[in-house]
C-alpha cells in the first residue's frame, strides 16, 4: 500500500499580514467565500451602474492554468476583469496587484488578500525570485493570473508600453495568455478620482496566445509583451 500524499498549504507557518502579503498564499473556505461574494456583488454593480458588457468570453480556456492580460487605466479594471470570469473559474483567479498600493498597510493587505484574492507585485523591488515563484505556482497549482503589463494605470487613457514581466511568467511554457481590452474604465474612474461616474464599460477577450517556443530570456520576454500589446490594440472597437 502506498503512503498517503499530504500537501500542506504553501503558506503554513505564516500568520496575519505576513500571510496576506505572501506570494504563496492559498485561500481557505472563508476567504474563498468572501472573494466569490465580492465578485458576485461587483458584477451586479458593474451591470447596473456601468452597463458592463463582455464579449469574446468563448476565448477563455475551459480550465486553468492561464493568464489574462489587459490595458490598465483605472482601479475598476481589476474588478471588471475578475467579475467577467465565469464563477467556476473565479475561484482560481489571482489578480496581480501593486504591492505598494494594495499591500502597504495591514487593512488594505487584508482587503486585497481576502476579498480580491490578489497577490502583491512590489514595483520597486520585484526580484527574479518573486517572478519565479509566480511562474512555478501558475503551472503546478493550475491558477489564473489577471495582470496589467503596463505596471501602472495610464494617466492619459492611452495604452502605455508593456513591461517584460509577463514574459517572465509564460515564455517557454504552453500556458495560454488571453489578451483583454477594457474600454470605458478611464472615463468612469480615471486615476485621481475617488468615486466612479456612470459610464458604460466593455470588455473584449481576444484569442489566447501560447509562447511555448519563445526563449525564456530578456529578448523573449519582450517579444511576449509586444505580441500581447499588439493583440490588445487589435481588439479596439
Amino acid at each position: 500500500m502506498n503512503d498517503w500524499e499530504y500537501k500542506p498549504a504553501a503558506d503554513v507557518g505564516l500568520a496575519g499580514a505576513e500571510r496576506w502579503r505572501s506570494l504563496r498564499r492559498e485561500a481557505g473556505l472563508p476567504s474563498t467565500l468572501a472573494h466569490m461574494t465580492w465578485c458576485g456583488l461587483t458584477r451586479a454593480y458593474l451591470g447596473m451602474w456601468h452597463h458592463f458588457r463582455v464579449t469574446g468570453a468563448e476565448n477563455l480556456p475551459a480550465k486553468p492554468p492561464f493568464v489574462v492580460v489587459a490595458n490598465h487605466t483605472s482601479h475598476l479594471d481589476a474588478i471588471a476583469l475578475a467579475a467577467a470570469l465565469p464563477p467556476a473559474l473565479r475561484v482560481h483567479a489571482f489578480p496581480i496587484a501593486a504591492g505598494d498600493t494594495f499591500f502597504e498597510t495591514k487593512a488594505t493587505a487584508a482587503f486585497a488578500a481576502v476579498f480580491l484574492n490578489a497577490l502583491p507585485m512590489w514595483r520597486k523591488s520585484c526580484g527574479a525570485h518573486a517572478m519565479e515563484t509566480l511562474r512555478e505556482r501558475l503551472v503546478t497549482e493550475g491558477l489564473i493570473y489577471l495582470l496589467f503589463p503596463e505596471g501602472t494605470r495610464s494617466r492619459t487613457g492611452e495604452m502605455g508600453k508593456f513591461r517584460a514581466g509577463i514574459g517572465m511568467l509564460v515564455a517557454g511554457t504552453p500556458t495560454p495568455v488571453v489578451p483583454a481590452r477594457l474600454d470605458g474604465c478611464f472615463a468612469a474612474m480615471p486615476p485621481g478620482s475617488r468615486l466612479p461616474k456612470r459610464h458604460p464599460i466593455t470588455l473584449r477577450f481576444g484569442a489566447p496566445q501560447s509562447f511555448a517556443d519563445v526563449p525564456n530570456d530578456r529578448a523573449g520576454w519582450q517579444r511576449v509583451a509586444d505580441s500581447l500589446r499588439a493583440a490588445i490594440e487589435g481588439l479596439a472597437p
Binding site: 499530504y6 500537501k7 500542506p8 498549504a9 503554513v12 492559498e26 481557505g28 473556505l29 474563498t32 475561484v91
Partner: peptide, 21 residues
C-alpha cells in the same frame, strides 16, 4: 479544524471541507 485542514492540504477539497464545517 482549519489548522488540521491546512496542515494536511485537505482544505483544497472545498465541498467536503464545507461539509465538515
Amino acid at each position: 479544524y482549519r489548522e488540521f485542514a491546512r496542515a494536511t492540504g485537505f482544505f483544497r477539497n472545498r465541498l467536503l471541507s464545507a461539509a465538515v464545517v
